[in-house]
Simulated assay, not measured.
Amino acid sequence: MFTPAGGFGQRLVAEGLCWQPVPMDRRSLNPLRELIFFWQFVRLLRREKPDLIHSFTIKCAIYGSLAARLAGVPARVNAVAGMGYVFTSDSPKASLLRPLVRMLLKLALGGRNARLILQNPDDVVLFRQARLVDPDHVRLIPGSGVDCERFSPAPEPVTDGRSRVVLPARLLWDKGLAEYVEAARLLRARGVPVDLLLAGDPDPGNPAAVPESVVRGWVSEGLLQWLGHVDDMPALFRSVHIVALPSYREGLPKGLIEAGASGCALVTTDVPGCREVVTHEVDGLLVPVKDGVALADAIERLVRDPVLRNTLGAAARKKAIAEFDERIVVARTLDVYAELLGST
């Protein structure tokens, strides 16, 4: 397994995987640096001689697939969870990069022995309409899987009459943090007995990152509690009543599925990825994107109606087991491997 250096490397080794750090910097736009890294990666693949390479995220899909083609790797699988900053942002930088990334993606995803795994139907349509990939080479697999035994329900926490809500995500504007804070202000003004929590690390490598100073300012205002990185997510979900993810777009949000498997009531936006996890009024509530008022209304409704909250949480758990359990996802991913390796 090849990833940038980081704290998770030793965890991979502890699980019995062969892990090697690679000097990829996702923030880098230096052409010379990128070319040097790319050639190093080609040489690494030639040395290791894998039968199949499975790349995740857009940048890794481009680098991994192109390097694999040059290194003669027989089979390539790319899993793209969402369209990423370049395709979702309206910033001048994203607009400038978009044609180049589109061209490189088309090169990376092409070829008889390549498959693209997407996590929601909207992305399937988008990739096909953009003619980035042969439609016959696309496989729809819902997410990366959740351990529905590890993430399991517990009795609702007793919190002195106050409900607890958590937003579990990297600290990015496009996860809906501005709308979450707006909702916090509205709920406080309305006197709703609720505490809002935020679980996640800063992500300075992402252009959409929320500065840590801004988050600390929200905490100082008393709008929310910031938990930072949380190792024990099952315990966190068992300690809250509601999980909110007002994201602008997702592949298939794993944190939301984990929360559903834990029996939490879910509030999310009616956008690609999120609406595959939540059906409105069936196993959660959907709100319009970038609408802090609607988010506050949905949270207040669940705070004031514990019967609805518990009903939606139970339905979310049932859906997670039926559609998103990791055993389903692993089996379907192995089917893609077998399809490719059997054709080489």
Rank of each mutant, 00 (worst) to 15 (best):
A208W: 03
A184W: 08
F41V: 03
L308Q: 12
A314H: 12
S65E: 05
W218M: 03
R46W: 09
L109C: 05
L236A: 07
A314C: 08
A71W: 14
R150I: 15
R128M: 11
F2G: 07
G6I: 02
P142Y: 08
L96I: 04
W39F: 14
L12S: 09
P211R: 11
D160P: 06
L224T: 00
K254R: 13
S91E: 15
E34L: 15
A261T: 02
L126I: 11
F87W: 07
P211S: 12
F37S: 08
N78K: 04
D297M: 05
A320I: 11
L105S: 02
L97E: 10
A331Q: 13
A183E: 12
A81R: 03
F41W: 05
M24R: 06
R188I: 14
L96P: 06
E221C: 09
D283C: 10
A338V: 13
I117G: 00
A75D: 02
A130F: 06
D123R: 14
F8C: 01
D325T: 01
D232C: 03
S65C: 11
F87S: 10
L12H: 11
D122P: 06
L198K: 06
D51W: 01
W218Y: 15
A130M: 14
K318G: 07
A61W: 05
L70I: 14
V277C: 08
R301G: 09
A209W: 03
L340Q: 08
P193W: 03
L104I: 14
T333V: 13
R190V: 12
V125P: 03
G176N: 06
L116M: 13
T3I: 08
V101Q: 03
Q20F: 01
G7L: 04
A114L: 03
D25L: 13
L171K: 01
R188H: 15
K106R: 15
S247Y: 06
D201Q: 15
G7F: 04
L295E: 04
L116T: 01
A189K: 12
A265N: 10
V219L: 10
